[in-house]
Amino acid sequence: MRTFIAFLLALYLVFFAAAAFESFGEPQGLGRIAEHYAAEGFEEVGAINLVTAVVVTYRGLDTLGEVSVLFTAASAVILLLSVFPLGKPANKPSSIVLLTMKVLPGPILLFGGYIIAHGHLTPGGGFPGGAVVASAALLVLLGCTQEVGFAKWLTFAESMAGFSFAMLGFWGLLKLGQFLNNSVLFLGIPGQLLSAGIIPLISAAIGVKVASELSGILVAYRCGGGKE
């Protein structure tokens, strides 16, 4: 009975959403802004992957805010778990987990680095690459039973990444009068690894920041907050 009432209420809410989309109508082409991005983005930014171009340069200020939201959530988790510590497991992992933990983090880390570095050429960029690198950290944390060595570097890496992201933005502001202007470095030939201005640098900053925040959440889960 309760489920049925909840179903009716949810149907009402979703019907509102469907009515709102009905008024938009079926999209026939790109919007005005997206048309500009698709037509000019190739020359303006020099990146092949338009999604990375939008995330990093055109909407770079929004990305800075979103990364701050992520930082707030991660620090709330770490704060709660260091004030109210929970026990941690003392169970030894079985041989399969132990072997996987020794072999697989290296290739995953390498592949995460590839995704971050080729963010302007192939699908990827800062956010997916950071998640992949955090998965490698997760694999290490699954097998360990005591403190891990990299935990004390996470805060430093996170703050340095955020600082360099903001500084790269202010570089454009000082040199060309526009926050996160992409033309402060040479644009290069689109399609090569060293091209597209400061997009690879900002991708690296976002990737390090996302990876250290997600790994910080996982380390707090394993070791109860620790010494932040």
């Binding site: 992957n49 999604v51 990375t52 929970l86 995704i115 699908p123 990827g124 960029g125 956010f127 997916p128 998640a131 992949v132 955090a134 998965s135 997760l138 694999l139 699954l142 997600l214 959440i217 996982l218 889960y221």
Partner: peptide, 26 residues
């Protein structure tokens, strides 16, 4: 949307599952 697919795969496969399993055990 290949970028979104990569993100969803890497988040949903490992990290999200581990978070909920941790909650279930604690």
């Amino acid at each position: 949307a290949p970028d979104v697919a990569i993100t969803e795969a890497s988040i949903g496969a490992g990290i999200s599952t581990v978070i909920f399993l941790w909650g279930r055990s604690k």
